[in-house]
């Protein structure tokens, strides 16, 4: 079962929930966790494991080979991103602007723009007992996160497709990168906090999930802080509140040190158990 942990707003506890849930579930099942927030991956700070493998991830961009080129200009005509320009007697390529569609390369009549690999980030696989953990990190200066997210998902599904649970720590927000992760999931857990910002961004996330047609439920973090507007909204919209996690300074301190919460905070352990039961129930429903 694929479970994505997402949130409209950043900093609501996505990574905290992903890491604690993955480790907790791995006490009784085989689990793989993937950190898909490739711009700022943090799960690895909380799930220390043994590094199994690490490799570079590439995107493909065209490179001009002048030998056969007759400067027809087709390449610049077919590029929708202004990544290829003909300037006098030469063709200039701007790799940062390239989306990797291959149009210039494949439509070039003389084969003068071969696609060559260019490193965009790194993927690392860790193991922590029964838990496998994949983290990808985008190189600074790379603007496109989605290609790396796609490759990471592919690798996870390939290597760990047989696991009982695949947990995806999703990027924040509601745009492309989030869609890429959540559209694959059987269940999305939206983490929010009981504040006006939390509520506003939760609404956006809910709209996104509805548009995608994926199953989702809500976890309210830092419960007790703020007010009850999130709960009222969920009730009005008939959205399941799977569980709540209390607001504790102690939680914030453990988190600050990169420690898992549930081994020392019983309320968190209870919350994780509730999530586990919710997942099981959802799985039963979807099978019947």
């Amino acid at each position: 079962m694929k479970i994505a942990i997402a949130s409209g707003k950043g900093g609501t506890g996505k990574t905290t929930l992903s890491t604690n849930l993955a480790v907790y579930l791995s006490e009784s099942a085989r689990v793989a966790l993937g950190d898909l927030d490739v711009e700022e991956p943090n799960s690895g700070l909380y799930v220390q494991g043994e590094e199994i493998e690490r490799h570079d991830k590439f995107k493909y961009v065209p490179r001009w080979n002048p030998a056969q080129c007759d400067l027809c200009g087709t390449c610049q005509l077919v590029c929708n991103f202004n990544a290829v320009l003909k300037l006098g007697q030469q063709i200039m390529v701007f790799p940062e602007l390239c989306h990797g569609c291959y149009a210039c390369s494949e439509l070039c009549p003389t084969g003068s723009l071969p696609m060559i690999p260019q490193k965009m980030g790194e993927l690392t696989v860790f193991r922590r007992g029964p838990l496998d953990f994949v983290e990808s990190q985008l190189n600074i200066g790379e603007e496109q996160a989605v290609p790396l997210i796609k490759q990471t998902l592919k690798q996870m599904n390939g290597s760990f497709g047989d696991r009982e649970y695949l947990i995806y720590d999703s990027p924040p927000g509601t745009s492309c990168p989030v869609i890429e992760v959540t559209k694959e999931a059987d269940l999305v857990i939206l983490v929010t906090e009981p504040t006006p910002f939390g509520l506003h961004d939760l609404k956006l996330a809910v709209e996104t999930m509805r548009e995608l047609g994926v199953e989702f439920g809500v976890v309210i973090n830092r419960h007790g802080l703020g007010d009850d507007r999130v709960e009222r909204y969920c009730a009005e919209q008939s959205i399941d509140i799977i569980t709540t996690i209390p607001n504790h300074r102690k939680i914030a301190e453990l988190y600050s040190r990169g420690e898992l919460l549930y081994p020392s905070i019983p309320e968190v352990k209870n919350a994780l158990e509730k999530i586990r039961l919710y997942i099981l129930e959802r799985r039963k429903e979807s099978r019947s």
Binding site: E40, L45, S256
Partner: peptide, 20 residues
């Protein structure tokens, strides 16, 4: 930023960008 392992990690990364 905030003094948490993730706060520090993300600060370093985003500052590399600012430096560019």
């Amino acid at each position: 930023t905030e003094p948490t392992v993730s706060g520090l990690h993300d600060l370093k990364r985003v500052y590399q960008l600012v430096k560019k």
